[in-house]
Every structure is written in C-alpha cells, then in structure tokens.
C-alpha cells in the first residue's frame, strides 16, 4: 500500500483530538464547547478510518458511522439543552451556569 503512511493519519487524529480537548477545557461558551467536542469525535473517527485502511478492514468505517450517529444524537440533545439554558439563564457562559455545585 503506497498511500499515506499510517503514522501521518494517526498524528493528524491526535492533533485534532488535542485541539478539541483544549477547546473543551478553555472555552466558556457552551456552543464552542460542543463544537470542540465535535472535533474530538471526528478525530476519533479519523483514527478508526486510518486503522481500517491500514489493515484493509471495513470495521473502521462502520465504527465511524457509529460515531457520526452518536454525534448527531448528541448535538440534537445538546442543542435542545442549550436552548433551554439560554431561555432560563439568559447566558451561555459555563462558569456562570454552576448551580449544581455541592
């Protein structure tokens, strides 16, 4: 197989994952946090596909389909929650929305 070497694919996936993680950790706006999570999902998906193409197996792509479905469901629920939160608190700042502390 003389395409892109697996190391490159995995490196890109790792970079993307870390970027997404960084976004989740530093962003205060919920929308951006959700977007960062999407990036993390896709990084994981990329890792699956890279692995699948390396070993010539369809499992990687199937797992990617699963991740996509999961992401779609997550967005549906997450955005609905975001709407409700905004209606109630008039803000999307995660540090302000900390009513569930112990």
């Amino acid at each position: 197989m003389n395409g892109i070497p697996i190391e490159h694919g995995l490196l890109l996936a790792t970079l993307l994952f870390c970027l997404g993680l960084l976004g989740v950790l530093v962003r205060r706006n919920i929308i951006f946090v959700l977007m960062s999570m999407e990036i993390m999902f896709n990084a994981v998906g990329l890792a699956f596909i890279t692995g699948g193409s390396r070993w010539l197996q369809a499992d990687g792509q199937i797992m990617f389909m699963l991740v996509l479905t999961l992401a779609a469901a997550e967005v549906a629920v997450g955005l609905a929650l975001v709407l409700q939160l905004y209606k109630r608190f008039k803000t999307l700042d995660l540090d302000v929305l900390s009513k569930l502390n112990g």
């Binding site: 989740v24 950790l25 946090v33 995660l94 540090d95 929305l97 900390s98 569930l100 112990g102």
Partner: peptide
C-alpha cells in the same frame, strides 16, 4: 470533603476526567 469536588463547573469536571 467530597462535596468540595462538586463545583458545578463542567470544564473542571472535563479536566479532571482527562
């Protein structure tokens, strides 16, 4: 003691999980 860890900040939870 345990209730100190429950800050209600999602980003903090995420960091701890990571």
């Amino acid at each position: 003691l345990l209730s100190f860890t429950q800050t209600g900040r999602v980003r903090w939870y995420a960091a701890v999980i990571v």
